[in-house]
Design a protein around this nucleic acid. Structure first.
Lengths: 254, 254
DNA sequence: CGGCAAGTTGAGCCAGGTCAACTCCGGTGG
DNA sequence: CCACCGGAGTTGACCTGGCTCAACTTGCCG
C-alpha cells in the first residue's frame, strides 16, 4: 500500500492506525524519518520517567495505558495532577524553571518518545498534523482547567461522580451507549488524582451503590444504572437526603 | 519604519510592542490583515463574554488587565478556574461538548478578538508566530496543572503563599528583585480562584503578617519580608508552630 | 496455602466552611 | 462639608465534611 516501508514498530500504534491521530497524518517520508529518530517504550505500573529521562526525551506520545503526571511537596504529600491516555502528546520541553514532576505509569503503558527536532519540523510543515497536535494540547489544557474546577469546589461525592462520567467519556474504544465503565486506576491513585483520601473514595463509591446509581461488576468495572442522577450529583445538585434511620422522618411543617 | 500603515489600534498593544509576543512576530502584511479582521474591546470589572460572544469571536488575546474563566455549578457555586493576563491568547473554538464557562473581567481589561480564519492562516505559515502561540498555550496548560495540584493537596495557608509567589512571578513589568507584589484581584475573586472562603483568605493573610513574612502596604499591595519562609510554606513545610500563649511551652521530653 | 498490598469499615477530631455582626472605604447627594 | 449608603473586607463563634488512625477483609501472586 504505502510504498516506503513503514517501520514495523509503528504498525500497531494507535497514533498511526487511528486516522484522527498525529502519525496518521504524516506523509510517508515524514513518518519514516520521525519513526527512525524515535524510541518506543513499554512501562509497567510504577515505572517512572524522571527529570533526566524527560530532559533527554521531552516529547512523549501515549499509545496505550494511563500515564500520570505527579507532583511532590516537601513533606511527602503526592498529587496526581493529570492523566494522559492514548493519543496524548506530551511536550515537556524547557520546563527548567518549574518544579514539575515525574511521569509515572499507573498500569501497563506503551509510549513513544519523539525526536523534538523532527517533531518540530513536521509540525511546522504539515498543517494537518499541526492541527491535530494543537487540538490535543488544547484538550489537555481544558481538561486540566475542568479538573481544577472540580477539585476546588466540589465535595467528595460530586468529585467521584464527575470522575466516573469523565471516564465514561474518555472510554477506550467502546461505544458510548454501553453503560459499563472501566476505572483504569487503583483506588489509591484515584484518591490522589481527586485530592482526597482512599478511605473517602471508597465511602463515596459505596454511597453511589447504596443509592442505586452504580453497580459494581468488579472493583474496576462499574455499571451505570441511573445516568441522569449521576450527572445531577456531578453537577452539584443535592439529592433529597435519604434519612439514615428509616423511621426518623424529616418533617417540614410542625 | 514599517512601510504599510500599522493600524493605530495596534500601536499601543503589548502583543505588538513586546517582541516576545505574538503580533510582534508578524510580517507587516500579516499584521495589517489580522488587525483589519480583529476587534479590540475595553472591559471593566464584571463585564462578561458569554457563550454567544465567544462563539462569534472564539479567539481572544489579552493586552492588559486580568481576565478570568469561570465555571458555574447548578446550585450557584462559582469557581474561577484560570486567570489570563497580558499576552495570553485564548482559543475557545469548538467547545460545544464541554460545559465551559464565561470570560469575566476582574478589573479593567483590554482585549483583542482575533479573526479565527486569519489567525489560523498566520499560525500555519509563520513558524516564529507559531512557536510563540504554542509556547503560550503550553504555559496555560501547565499553569492549570500546577493550579490543580495546589488546590488538591495544599492547605489554606499554603495556597495563599503559593498565590503570592505566583503573582510575584507573573508580575507585570517590575524587575523581579522588587519585593513588592501587587495582588490584581479582590479578595472575593481570590477566594474563588483558590477554592476557599473569603474569610479564610483574610485569616491567612493575617497569619502571614503576624509571622512577619508579609507586610501590607495597602489591601492589594504587599511587601515580601521573608521570601524564603514564604516559599517554604508554599511548598508545604510546616513551620515550628508558635505556641499561642507564650508560656504554654510544648515539651518534647517529660 | 501463606503473605502482602489494596481496599474497606469504624470512631474520633480538626481545618476550614458557615453565619452573623461589625468595620472600613469610596461614592453620592443634600 | 458632612451624612448616608452599600459593598468589600474582617473578626468571632460555632459546626461539619472529610482526614486520620487503627483494625479488619479481600484479592492477588508465588
Amino acid at each position: 500500500m504505502r510504498p516506503p516501508a513503514i517501520p514495523p514498530k509503528c504498525g500497531q500504534c494507535v497514533l498511526y492506525t487511528d486516522s484522527r491521530m498525529f502519525c496518521a497524518q504524516l506523509a510517508d517520508d515524514e513518518q519514516v524519518e520521525l519513526s527512525g529518530q524515535s524510541r518506543t517504550l513499554s512501562m509497567k505500573r510504577g515505572d517512572t520517567l524522571g527529570d533526566s529521562a524527560i530532559s533527554c526525551w521531552p516529547i512523549v506520545a501515549v499509545d496505550s495505558g494511563v500515564l500520570s503526571l505527579q507532583h511532590l511537596l516537601q513533606d511527602g504529600r503526592k498529587t496526581i495532577t493529570t492523566l494522559f491516555m492514548k493519543g496524548d502528546i506530551i511536550d515537556l520541553r524547557d520546563l527548567s524553571n518549574r518544579n514539575r514532576g515525574a511521569l509515572i505509569a499507573l498500569g501497563n503503558v506503551k509510549i513513544c518518545r519523539l525526536s523534538p527536532k523532527i517533531f518540530e519540523q513536521v509540525v511546522a510543515n504539515n498543517p494537518k498534523a499541526q492541527k491535530i497536535v494543537w487540538h490535543n494540547l488544547r484538550d489537555q489544557a481544558f481538561r486540566a482547567i475542568d479538573h481544577s474546577a472540580d477539585i476546588a469546589k466540589k465535595q467528595a461525592l460530586e468529585k467521584v461522580a464527575s470522575f466516573v462520567i469523565e471516564c465514561h467519556h474518555r472510554q477506550d474504544t467502546e461505544p458510548k451507549n454501553s453503560h459499563l465503565v472501566k476505572i483504569p486506576l487503583r483506588r489509591i491513585d484515584l484518591a490522589e488524582y481527586l485530592g482526597m483520601q482512599p478511605e473517602t473514595v471508597s465511602r463515596c463509591f459505596k454511597t453511589l451503590q447504596k443509592r442505586g446509581i452504580l453497580e459494581a461488576k468488579s472493583l474496576n468495572l462499574l455499571h451505570i444504572i441511573d445516568d441522569l442522577r449521576l450527572q445531577r450529583i456531578a453537577n452539584g445538585e443535592k439529592e433529597p437526603e435519604i434519612p439514615k434511620s428509616p423511621n426518623a422522618q424529616v418533617l417540614k411543617s410542625a
